[in-house]
Amino acid sequence: MLAKRIIPCLDVKDGRTVKGVNFKELRDAGDPVELGALYAEQLADELCFLDISATLEERKTFASLVKDIARNVNIPFTVGGGISEVSQVGRLLEAGADKITVNSAAVSNPILVEDMANEFGSQCVVVAIDTKYKDGQWYVYTHGGTKATPILTIDWAKQVHDLGAGEILLTSMNHDGTKSGFALDITRTISEIINIPVIASGGAGTMKHFKEVFTEGKADAALAASIFHFKEMEIGDLKNYLREGGIPIRS
């Protein structure tokens, strides 16, 4: 049986790991290559590195970082952050990344998703969706959650699936940084409607939250950052808890 995946996410700025609380405050949590290799040793199933650099100079650091990660990490990893062109995707895949995540650029130019799938295959195309619950509906937000759009999350998920996305990384802005649990309803809705894996993100605080998102939320994978970086939860303990709870987990 296919195992549910645990994915630590590392936000990277100028070669260092950071994590925003509600996307605003940043704290330093170490060297991304070292941290990534440590998580792989602790049986993380995949890693995610998001470049949150603001300047071109810092972005150059990220491309060489991807190669360093590939050299040192023996599990799959996704990279993303500020990607808007197919040529950038090609360079990151050549550097050794397994999957590429796109967010705002896909919303403003959906053909990017199709072009990536045609050129490199759906398996490496992860569309990240930042979503927020407002007035009874889930909407798509862009630019690190700062810009609202009139697009319904469910419509956007269907559209990117049709364009060839291989996976969806769904982050609830209402839950991100709160440690009060994942957004179970929208995660489940998306997972049931589209036939590609859904990674749930935003809100992980306890082990029970992970169990809920795999059962009630029907997520294929769950992503978290600060609880792992600041050692509030060990991946090994979390995996033991989930396995004892009857969830298929890689040991």
Binding site: M1, L2, G166, N195, P197, D220, A221
Partner: peptide, 9 residues
């Protein structure tokens, strides 16, 4: 779900 993506036995 297709592709079969992730860790399996």
């Amino acid at each position: 779900k297709v592709p079969h993506m992730g860790w399996n036995k």
